[in-house]
Amino acid sequence: MSNLKHAFNLTLFLFAVWLLLSGHYTPLMLVLGAASTLLVVFLAIRVAIIDREIQPVLLKPSVLFYWFWLAWEIIKSNLDVTRRILSPGLPISPKIFTVRAGQKTELGRVTYANSITLVPGTVTMDIDEDIFTVHALTQAAAADLERGEMNRRVCSVENVF
């Protein structure tokens, strides 16, 4: 029953995106757009990916605040990695280590793993339940992640998902 609601929301959302990007509003085009929307929703139901994770949660205030914090982290580590790449001595010290993710839900873990990867200097290599194997370009970047601030912040936005 709730899946039907999610499928309905997805249909509305996809058709809105279609209307936004199309720019042609003749009857034939509208029918074709509706048909393609329904085809996509049908395929999504076939591969069973309709669940609560397709809800648009990106614009709730606390999540938005997290995005801004993440953007600032990305800018800082970008400047650091840039400085290291351009230094003649190439001062890098690659390291592989594991961190424990404190998130309860799968979506929370995905957000954490993707945030780690998005910040230059650290890449999530492997995920085993709540243990992430991470490759860091420098010891400093590794120490930064091990302090666990990003983990805490993802945990605190997780419950709005």
């Binding site: 990305i74 990695v81 840039t82 790449i85 190439l90 998005l118 910040v119 230059p120 890449v123």
Partner: peptide, 19 residues
């Protein structure tokens, strides 16, 4: 071009992909 191995090159691509 400059970094020594595959895993470190990931970080360089990360720079051009984000910033």
């Amino acid at each position: 071009l400059r970094l020594p191995d595959f895993y470190t090159r990931l970080h360089a691509v990360s720079v051009s992909d984000t910033m």
